[in-house]
Simulated assay, not measured.
Amino acid sequence: MVNSASLIISPEILSLIAEIDEFKGAWRALGQLAPEQLSSLKKVATIESIGSSTRIEGSKLTDKQVEELLSNLEIQKFTTRDEQEVAGYSTVMNLLFQSYAEIPLSENYIQQLHSLLLKHSEKDYWHRGTYKKSPNHVEAFDSTGKSLGVVFETASPFETPIRMQDLIEWATHAYTIKDLHPLLITAMVIVEFLAIHPFQDGNGRLSRILTTFLLLKAGYHYVPYSSLESVIEQSKEGYYLALRQTQGTLKNERPDWQPWILFFLRALQQQKRRLEVKVEKENLLLMQLPELSLQILQFIESRGKATIGDVVTVTNANRNTIKKHLETLVSTKRLQKNGIGKGTWYTI
């Protein structure tokens, strides 16, 4: 069972929670951005999240390579382990973004998410969605994928089901009675989950997916539009250090929650600040766009895709004028051009 009795709420923790919650409230207004803006922010953040989270575990795919892979997911055959991990991560992220409200926090659903996460990983088929049968440990990797050694000794296979049951029961109760702030509960769930390391592989990636899931469940609806995983990747040494400092005390009578909770809240602060900058930039760009360009964007967003002919029909504008607007929108990365010649179409 998670021992929260020793948790000290410092002034910095209070200040961080207040700043994050203020943005959570402000997002109700900021989130009224045009659909094409939100779609663009979400796409970029999703690519960053998948790329960063898999690289933290040793993948070598760049964000550009991740983007190319995601645009061809229908091929359903991924030759390398890096590609398989990206495809699985994308599947789970899309599911959570669409259905988080209907998915309860339970062992069964965590196991299902793990199974989906490793759906394309050929060497992991034997342990998808099932708790570990052999001891495992946490390893850290540098930017080249080289192991930095063992970070933490995890729960034994025998202990794992008991500790997972206790963790989910504690979290469900804590979120319900609201004695602790949901951000603190989420931080404690994640650090304990990683201390247990319940699955043979994929625990790090799944912990970051669970973070997104729990934040969405707690009402932090801006999370899909800014990558927390990217923040963590850029402070990877601090991430592992904070985990190690808190996890090393979890079996003590008075665990030291401060290192991990401070890292977690500072990462959330950085995530929301990045989103603030992006939203401001999007609004400035929109203000600078001609009316016809805005009309084109709104039309393509509503249709999903459109050809030059479609846009001409709807706007009644000159074809050459439409072409120039489309070229500008593509060059500023507000639209994507697909196909060639007469078969060309545009998407957000």
Rank of each mutant, 00 (worst) to 15 (best):
T315G: 10
R55H: 10
Y125V: 13
P157F: 10
S39A: 12
K43G: 09
L241F: 12
E280W: 03
L117R: 01
Q65T: 15
K337N: 08
W27I: 02
L228A: 07
T54Q: 12
H221Q: 13
I50C: 13
T130C: 01
R163L: 13
G145C: 10
W27G: 04
Q112L: 03
A45L: 00
A101S: 08
V151A: 00
G202A: 04
I190E: 11
L116D: 08
E12M: 01
K146N: 14
I296T: 07
F199I: 08
P182H: 10
D166G: 01
L265W: 02
R273Y: 09
I8T: 07
V314Q: 14
A29F: 11
V231T: 10
E36F: 10
N94S: 14
L216W: 10
S226P: 06
L113F: 11
E36M: 06
A101G: 00
E280A: 12
I162V: 13
L167F: 15
T160C: 01
K64G: 10
S331F: 08
T212W: 04
I103P: 05
A5T: 03
Y240R: 08
Q336E: 14
K281E: 11
K178H: 15
Q288M: 12
H325I: 08
S121N: 05
S49Q: 14
Q288E: 15
N108M: 03
S52E: 13
D256W: 04
T172D: 15
I17F: 06
Q111N: 03
L180E: 09
L184Y: 05
T212R: 03
T249H: 06
E153R: 01
L292C: 12
T176G: 13
S207P: 06
S230P: 00
K123Y: 10
G145R: 07
V92L: 02
G88S: 03
K333Y: 06
I196P: 01
L268G: 00
L243I: 01
Q76E: 14
S143M: 07
P224F: 12
R319I: 15
E107A: 03
N338M: 15
S230N: 14
Q98V: 01
I162N: 06
Y131G: 03
R128S: 03
R319P: 15
A45P: 09
E237I: 14
W126N: 09
I168K: 04
F263R: 05
I75E: 14
